[in-house]
Design a protein around this nucleic acid. Structure first.
Ligand code: MN
Ligand code: MN
Length: 706
DNA sequence: GCGTGTC
DNA sequence: GACACGCAACGCGGG
DNA sequence: CCCGCG
């Protein structure tokens, strides 16, 4: 049949029809008509696209549904796509695309034009923008050299990168990329890079390769970008530990990636036309969108238009070692706000500015330190003024967020850049308003606080990749696609999950992981717990204030026994009291101790506690569940979200903040983030120093002999 | 989310 | 191709 | 020995 055209809606085969392949077919059956009637017909095709053995098989249900199945023969092609080969699958090693020619001596890099936000559409591919030095890497045989944007030879400075390029499996290559430094969040990597180079420390350097313009005697500049990147990807070995990394991309929805990049505090997004050749100099086939930065600044004045009683713009300053003017921000206030802030600011107006300011029309000055503004902006001018400053909010003398002094940065920009999410806008539970991206962002932002008590322990996960509350499951063993940085560890006859690195941790939201339940031991010593958990499970109708008294009673008793303890809400109805251990006592001894402790507390305070699991007998009391610290069991991790539509959080608190005003409902995905980011110290500060073995005195104290 | 098996 | 399924599991103590 | 419990 040669029919092509459009079949109208509601008719059989509705939609666009075109001839996709031509050829002949031969039946493999003696009686094809009979075979067809019986529901199974084998035949051979010889077409331009499809070849070899095929089978039509009728499904038992209905009579119009057939399967077209490819036989296993030499014509089988894995990954074959009806829509055409995906760009990444372009064959490269045998026949290199491009045309023969010498490797250019000097090349100007292709540059991107700045835009406000990334473009949309399937013709664009989007990469993470790294903040470093643009660099060409040139490999000719065993010789490797590096050139800056302006053509300077920086091979000496980038010495540490040479081996990675020398090891590449090709005769020659000219690779375009960015040299950056592996960086903790907070400082920009550009600053770190300059520091690293000036101190002669090049061991942190990483080359992010995003283009290849010449290889093995072939000029690739006129080859489409998608093909060049495919060549590059084949060339660069996979392996996160290398100093030479392939800068991967996503296709299509750039705005989604941009929003993720902004929220994670990365530099921005570079978007490139996937079918465009490599062009030297500034082009429109590459565009870059830098993220908005958000900062809090002091309001030192405001302007008005003529004698208007509305605020037209804020005059802003920031204080590092000294106070400096950073320019004005005008947009972002509603009309009624421009009026109400005029009144507020007028009440703290002063005659002269606190610092030297450029002369400004309609300027008024206010007492410094009275108001701050949260400003979004995009980089700075050479004078240090904010570009494209917009007002997000104004606060009365709020303290700027300084971050926790005693929490180490564990998550690097590189870890954040490696997060890949499919379906980022999918709601974790339909109607909950929390998306997979929200989940990933939450864990990226609490990771530095969470990981010290989570890494390198066996861990059970609670997942819900399906979007349904009815479809939530535990996972304690490995699963296919386990991210880099996740491992399994053998214990007895089973293999249990372990998170080894921040990267492994950040890879989990992609798999619908919601809750984290680590064991109370490290993988380095699976026989000796290094902490123990007393789980307070309130029965029906137990008030939060009772849980607070109960936890404090447990703490006081532990204290009498010479053991420090720390508390968290569990995100459910109860609380955990966690005791740091030295890792000397085995599970049996810890269990013995906990059992005696729970029995003792239940005996002494029978109206508050029970150590009997029976739910019926719990009424109005708290069940002291000591089975959280048993070989093979686990307890929810601090900062873990809980898998309910409210997404409450298991929140560790300093004892003085654990009171009737902090019921578990206070902490959910959103509030927990601002809570954590407002903290100046770790709520469990001192945990490591408080590790003790269970002493003879402690055993005696709970009625066991020492 | 993903591999696996069934219809 | 659509769909359904699994994705942990052990030990304690009471009856 | 089974069951509820987490
Ligand atoms: Mn509990
Ligand atoms: Mn419990």
């Amino acid at each position: 049949s040669d029919f092509e055209g459009i079949i109208p809606k509601d008719e059989y085969g509705a939609g666009a029809i075109f001839v996709w392949d031509r050829g002949t077919w031969v039946s493999m059956e003696d009686d094809p008509a009979a075979a067809l009637a019986s529901g199974e017909l084998k035949f051979q095709l010889s077409g331009e696209k499809l070849n070899g053995g095929w089978m039509l098989k009728k499904l038992p249900k209905g009579d119009k549904q057939w399967l077209l199945i490819k036989e296993r023969d030499r014509f089988v092609e894995k990954g074959f796509s009806v829509a055409g080969e995906p760009a990444a699958e372009v064959p490269v090693t045998a026949i290199l695309p491009g045309k023969p020619g010498p490797m250019p001596k000097r090349l100007k890099p292709q540059l991107a034009t700045a835009v406000a936000s990334p473009p949309d559409g399937e013709e664009w591919l989007h990469e993470i923008k790294y903040d470093g030095y643009r660099t060409f890497a040139r490999k000719e045989g065993d010789g490797v050299s590096f050139f800056t944007r302006s053509g300077l030879n920086w091979t000496e400075k980038y010495e540490a990168l040479v081996p990675a390029f020398a090891a590449l499996d090709c005769e020659s290559a000219l690779i375009d990329g960015e040299v950056a430094v592996q960086d903790a969040r907070g400082a920009t990597s550009f600053e770190m890079l300059q520091k690293a180079l000036s101190e002669g420390r090049d061991h942190d350097l990483i080359f992010y390769a995003f283009d290849i313009v010449h290889s093995n005697g072939n000029d690739l500049t006129s080859v489409p970008l998608a093909t060049r990147k495919a060549v590059l990807r084949r060339l660069i070995p996979n392996g996160s530990d290398s100093r030479l990394l392939y800068s991967d991309h996503v296709i299509g929805d750039g705005r989604q990636l941009f929003s993720q990049v902004c929220r994670l505090g990365l530099e921005g997004v570079v978007s490139k036309k996937s079918n465009a050749p490599y062009r030297q100099g500034r082009t429109h086939s590459w565009v870059k969108a830098k993220r908005f930065e958000i900062g809090t600044f002091d309001i030192i004045g405001f302007t008005t238009k003529a004698s208007s009683r509305h605020v037209a713009s804020l005059m802003l300053a920031e204080t590092a070692e000294e106070t400096n003017y950073v320019g004005r921000a005008g947009t972002g206030l509603a009309l009624d706000e421009t009026r109400s802030y005029f009144d507020k600011f007028s009440s703290v107006e002063i005659d002269a500015p606190a610092i030297a300011l450029p002369k400004t029309q309609g300027a008024h000055f206010v007492e410094p330190g009275r108001y701050t503004a949260e400003i979004s902006y995009r980089g700075r001018t050479t004078k240090g003024h904010l570009r494209q400053a917009a007002i997000l909010s104004i606060k009365e003398t709020a303290k700027p967020n300084r971050g926790r002094s005693n929490t180490k940065k564990l998550i690097t920009d590189r870890d954040l850049a490696n997060i890949r999410l499919t379906n980022p806008d999918r709601e974790i539970f339909k109607g909950s308003g929390t998306t997979k991206q929200d989940l990933a962002v939450y864990y990226a932002r609490v990771g530095d606080s969470m990981l010290p008590h989570l890494l390198n322990r066996p861990v059970s996960l609670i997942r819900s990749p399906s979007g349904s509350l009815d479809d939530v499951f535990y996972q304690r063993h490995g699963f296919p696609g386990l991210p880099d940085g996740m491992e399994t560890i053998k214990d007895g006859d089973s293999e249990y999950l372990v998170i080894r690195t921040p990267r492994g941790f950040l890879g989990l939201p992609q798999f619908g992981v919601i809750e984290f339940h680590p064991w109370d031991c490290r993988t380095s010593d699976m026989d000796h717990p290094d902490r123990m958990t007393v789980d307070l499970d309130p029965g029906e109708e137990v008030e939060w204030s009772t849980v607070v008294s109960g936890a404090n009673a447990v703490r006081d008793r532990l204290h009498e026994l010479g053991l420090a303890s720390f508390v968290r809400t569990t995100g459910g109805k109860g609380a955990h009291v966690v005791v740091p251990l030295a890792g000397k006592d085995d599970w049996a001894k810890v269990r013995q101790f906990l059992k005696a402790l729970a029995r003792q507390l239940a005996d002494e305070m029978p109206r508050l506690f029970t150590d009997l699991q029976s739910k019926a007998k719990r009424r109005g009391r708290i069940y002291l569940d000591i089975n959280r610290t048993t070989h093979g069991t686990s307890a929810v991790a601090s900062y873990s979200l809980r898998a309910t539509p409210e997404f409450q959080v298991a929140m560790p608190l300093p004892w003085q903040d654990f009171h009737t005003g902090t019921p578990p409902t206070v902490f959910n995905r959103k509030s927990a983030l601002s809570h954590v980011e407002r903290q100046s110290v770790d709520p469990w500060d001192g945990f490591e120093k408080a590790r003790r073995p269970i002493s003879a005195k402690a055993l005696k104290g709970v009625g066991l002999k020492g």
